[in-house]
Amino acid sequence: MTAVKQLVKGLAEQHGRNEESLLPILQGIVSQEQHISEDAMVEVARELNISAAQVYGTATFYSFLHTKPLGKFVIRVCKTITCMMHGKNQIIKELETVLKINLGETTHDGKFTLLETNCLGQCHKGPAMLINDKPYTQLTPEKVREIIMMYRHEEVRAN
């Protein structure tokens, strides 16, 4: 049995094999593997006896269920109107310069992925972004540089 098969089987045993088990299983895969691969989706479909397209449809509906491999740190900059008016475009430009990638891309070392997201509920403190689960608000280009430096340092120390 492959590792993916094992993982999905374990999650199905934990959450059940009903249609409503689909989301917790997908979340379980993301927390283990960070993204849901094609093989994993086929396995989920097999375990729950539903169509693979349905698994794909559910996985692609939710922004936090990744269907593509992402970097270790996923940066999501709020794209909605308040953050936009507070200068989110400059924030993105700065991130692109610091990370040397374009929006939607992942750095070569696999550390950072830069994405846009819908409202983070931080309109009073815009512009805002998330790095993995941690929110950062009232961003300025300078603050963004510091945050990224901090993540890079932590990485170096951790290794």
Binding site: S51, A53, G57
Partner: peptide, 24 residues
């Protein structure tokens, strides 16, 4: 889904990106 119970087509993505899609 209903008549044929195959599920070759599903709704994928959301909002303006929503589309009718096969698996992957």
């Amino acid at each position: 889904n209903e008549l044929q119970n195959i599920g070759a087509l599903s709704v994928a993505y959301k909002g303006e990106h929503m589309k009718i899609s096969s698996f992957y």
